[in-house]
Design a protein around this nucleic acid. Structure first.
Lengths: 262, 262
DNA sequence: CCCCCTTCTCGTATGATGTACGGTACGGCG
DNA sequence: CGCCGTACCGTACATCATACGAGAAGGGGG
């Protein structure tokens, strides 16, 4: 598996690409476009993972020479940036969500969760210094709206959103794995478990590691059987929102925070 | 930046390497050892990041031919596995921590946070299907101990630990960036901000994105000035633990959960 | 209409990468 | 003493991103 990210240089070029502010194509608009390239790249990544995403693969899929891509895109890093911003644009953003701030945050969490399931490679890309494209900013704007006017400072609003989305990132991991196991030929989650189990038994000594042995076995068997990741996601989300609720209650008297703001 | 992980094949070989169960060296024990290789690799990754970690670099640092490494280590993926398990062994695990389960969880969170700061490359490696080495399991055992006997089911114990460690992973990201900015020559966080700011202003229209413009600017200025990531980490941690406390209170009556459990 | 010049297209070359393969040298055991 | 397993390593290959410069193609000015 391979993950790269941009930061090569010239933020102007990068941002111009993301926002499509370009004098653009005096000739005829060009047969190839950034959009087609990005779509092809996303298809490759969705199908075969980030490791399989190479400039050659993308060019082949478009029936085009490899270097042609570089006319429209500065490099692979920038292409990945645009891919990111593009899929961020896919998130559903309903205007009205029942349940106050709590319902809105839960909806945001589930939407992000679904996004990771749709594009598993998102888990691989380092979102440090994210691409400041239009879709990312629109998404950020929307998510901030969920906690606007409920009594948090600006920095707290940012912190809560970061907290929730960060949690989703972590929770999506096992879920994506489970989902991929069913469709992938390589090695099912069960196969992996069964392949490692005999060696683990020899090594996971209940005397040295009583808790790990007990809990690990329980969790292992549970995960092997049912689609637990989704339940685990909801469990953690509930804890998280409870924590936010405590903050709001401490802040603004005894008003039931789940109803405030709407 | 490049991140890879193992899963090549033969879990037996992988686990044997992690647990060092090997007939080993009929000759004389060999001048080179897995330990020396792993230490060198960690040094390279610490110093120059995961992208700079190549088999050639590691071999050069040891004054050894590249291919020599392959006599001790099946491949780069497995080497990364051992690196992971090795640094997991570095975590401090005091037997007694004041403050009950809450103090113990906070201690675990801070310890993990420090680990990420010590080895920033940890953020880059995909910990799906983690290396089941002795240190990882010992760490897991210790962390489970923090929530043992406070009224959670086995699955909930696992879920809470996953929740906390996952949160730390997310919170460590900006902290690591800030720390690296001070020591890295390439581009300071401030430089990056200042390089992007003019284009952002043009693009971050307060009419279209009022919240993002306001909060983003506030957060940007704040992050630029002070070492906020650490404070943000503590903020989120408090929320998280509050959420867990709510769960415990709902579960076991009205006992003040922060005091329960030794 | 023709020419030039901007822009699109892409083949080749370069310097990385991980690692398969085949060879060398040496130490302990028969 | 002889043999063989093991540590060692040089070379070779496939794959990667991408710098460079040459070819093609279409539109605007003479």
């Amino acid at each position: 598996m391979t993950t790269e990210y941009s930061g090569t240089g010239d933020p102007a070029r990068s941002l111009a690409l993301l926002w499509r502010t370009r004098e653009k194509a005096s000739r005829k608009g060009g047969d190839l476009s950034v959009e087609r390239i990005v779509r092809a790249a996303i298809e490759v990544a969705d199908a075969d993972g980030l490791a399989a995403l190479s400039m050659r693969r993308v060019a082949e899929r478009l029936g085009v020479g490899t270097m042609t891509l570089y006319t429209h895109v500065p490099g692979k890093g920038e292409l990945l940036d645009v891919m990111l911003d593009t899929v961020y644009g896919e998130t559903n953003r309903p205007e009205q969500v029942p349940g106050g701030w709590r319902g809105r945050l839960a909806q945001i969490a589930r939407e992000n969760f679904a996004l990771y399931l749709r594009h598993p490679w998102l888990l691989q890309v380092a979102t440090t210094r994210p691409p400041l494209g239009p879709n990312l900013i629109a998404k950020y704007e929307y998510e901030l709206g969920a906690v606007d006017g409920i009594g948090l400072t600006d920095l707290e609003m940012d912190a809560v959103i970061t907290l929730v989305t960060g949690y989703v990132h972590g929770a999506a991991r096992p879920a994506v794995e489970a989902a991929q196991a069913t469709r992938h030929t390589g090695m099912t989650e069960q196969q992996w478990w069964h392949a490692h189990a005999p060696y683990l038994e020899k090594v996971l000594d209940p005397n040295r590691f009583p808790l790990a042995a007990r809990v690990g076995t329980t969790a292992g068997q549970e995960y092997q059987a049912a689609g637990d990741p989704a339940r685990a996601f909801e469990f953690g989300l509930a804890r998280l929102l409870d924590g936010v609720e405590v903050l709001l209650r401490d802040r603004a008297g005894a008003a039931p925070a789940g109803v405030t703001g709407g």
